[in-house]
């Protein structure tokens, strides 16, 4: 098993408050990893250490290492911009740009100079929208504002936008928490689809969702990684008593 991302002894601080304690875990390539745990336990914080999104918080500091394809992304001299292109992210609340549907997806392609010409750009946008299972719904109004889409459609647009730059890893922070069951189901199907080409890390509060979509699950509590195991095992026969209590409590 090839591990895409390998985290070792990671501590994370907001100013003097420690939010993550000594996290070590390996994320294999082309799998879906779910992060679960009570609110405030540090799931989002941990997720955001994987593409160094926490760099935007002035008080944040990190100890330990995050290896991606064998290179520490926290090593000095790391190109954060290039890193984030390789590690895409989808946020809890959809955040389309105030641009047309087409331009939202085209944005990342343009700034990164991925396309060779206009036809190529259009093709890439179409492919991203198809991969995000949105194409059929928007193909006739690509030039209208992204704000005109429904919440679920906006979230899939954001996924398409992330896919368009061809990342290797996609981080998703509760991507379906603001959506209705049908939109949620679409996103879940999409995640399973995308696993063929991408490594996906998804934070969720929904145990069934974790069970349905993920290959492995990591359970966090109070900033510590309690257990990390194949999802199957985690939900039937966890190693830790804490995990069992949490999962049964949440399932009940």
């Amino acid at each position: 098993m090839e591990s895409k991302i390998s985290v070792k002894n990671l501590d994370f601080f907001y100013g003097s408050n420690q939010a993550l304690y000594d996290i070590s875990l390996d994320i294999p390539e082309r799998e879906v990893i779910a992060f679960i745990g009570p609110s405030g336990c540090g799931k989002s914080t941990f997720l955001r250490t994987l593409n160094r999104m926490n760099d935007t918080i002035a008080s944040a500091s990190v100890k330990g290492s995050v290896m991606m394809d064998g290179k520490n992304i926290y090593a000095s001299g790391t190109d954060v911009v290039a890193l984030r292109r390789r590690v895409g992210m989808v946020f809890q609340k959809s955040n389309p740009f105030p641009k047309s549907i087409f331009e939202n997806v085209a944005y990342g392609i343009r700034i990164n100079g991925i396309h060779s010409n206009k036809a190529d750009l259009e093709e890439r946008v179409e492919r991203a929208l198809k991969n995000a299972a949105l194409w059929e719904e928007v193909k006739d109004r690509l030039n209208s504002s992204a704000f005109g889409l429904s919440g679920g459609q906006q979230q899939r647009l954001c996924i398409a936008r992330a896919l368009a730059v061809q990342p290797e890893v996609i981080l998703m922070d509760e991507p379906a928490s603001a959506l209705d069951p049908i939109a949620t189901q679409k996103i879940e199907e999409l995640v399973v689809e995308l696993k063929r080409d991408y490594t996906i890390v998804i934070v969720t509060h929904n145990m069934q969702q974790a069970a349905r979509v993920s290959d492995r699950t990591a359970f966090f509590m109070l900033g510590k990684l309690v257990e990390f195991n194949p999802t199957q095992k985690m939900f039937t026969n966890p190693d830790e008593k804490l995990t069992e209590d949490y999962i049964t409590g949440r399932f009940g």
């Binding site: 593409n51 984030r84 992210m89 946020f91 389309p96 740009f97």
Partner: peptide, 25 residues
Amino acid sequence: PHTQREAALALGATKWETTMIVLGN
């Protein structure tokens, strides 16, 4: 909203490209 900046950064935008998104908003 801060999420607009994060969205741009997460796509590999540079500081200045992110700023242009903010200006667009």
